[in-house]
C-alpha cells in the first residue's frame, strides 16, 4: 500500500533508480504500476509475523576461496568495451 501519491512515488523511485520516465511512457507505466502494486498487495492479507524469511534456498555451506592469487585480465581486455579511455584510466563523469 503506497503511503504517497502514485506520481510522487514514481518520481522518487525513478530518481533512486536513475531511470527517467518519458512523458509517453508515463501513462503506461503509471497504469501498469497501479495494477502490479495491487497484485503485490494480495500478500498483505496474510499474517506472517511468526514466519522466518527465506532469502536463499541453498542448504549446503557456500563455496569459499583460499587466499591464493589467480589470473587477472589484461589491460586490453579491461578496456576493450570502454568507450572513453585516457592514459589507461576509464573516463567517468563529474562527481560533484
Amino acid at each position: 500500500m503506497l503511503k504517497e501519491d502514485l506520481k510522487v512515488w514514481l518520481e522518487r523511485i525513478s530518481k533512486l533508480s536513475l531511470i527517467r520516465i518519458s512523458s509517453e511512457e508515463e501513462e503506461i507505466i503509471l497504469n501498469d504500476m497501479k495494477k502490479i502494486i495491487e497484485f503485490f498487495n494480495t500478500i498483505n492479507s496474510l499474517d506472517l509475523s511468526n514466519v522466518e524469511p527465506l532469502f536463499m534456498v541453498l542448504k549446503d555451506e557456500p563455496v569459499v576461496r583460499d587466499d591464493e592469487v589467480g589470473e587477472s585480465l589484461s589491460v586490453d581486455e579491461v578496456l576493450k568495451n570502454v568507450k572513453e579511455v585516457e592514459g589507461g584510466f576509464i573516463k567517468g563523469p563529474k562527481t560533484a
Binding site: 576461496r65 592469487v69 589467480g70 585480465l73 589491460v75 592514459g87 589507461g88
Partner: peptide
Amino acid sequence: KTKLFCSCPSDYRGKPPNTNVC
C-alpha cells in the same frame, strides 16, 4: 594476498591503472 571476492592480487599500489582487475 588477494582481494575480498576475487583472486586479483591485493598489492595494487604503484601499478598502472586498470591492470589489477578481473
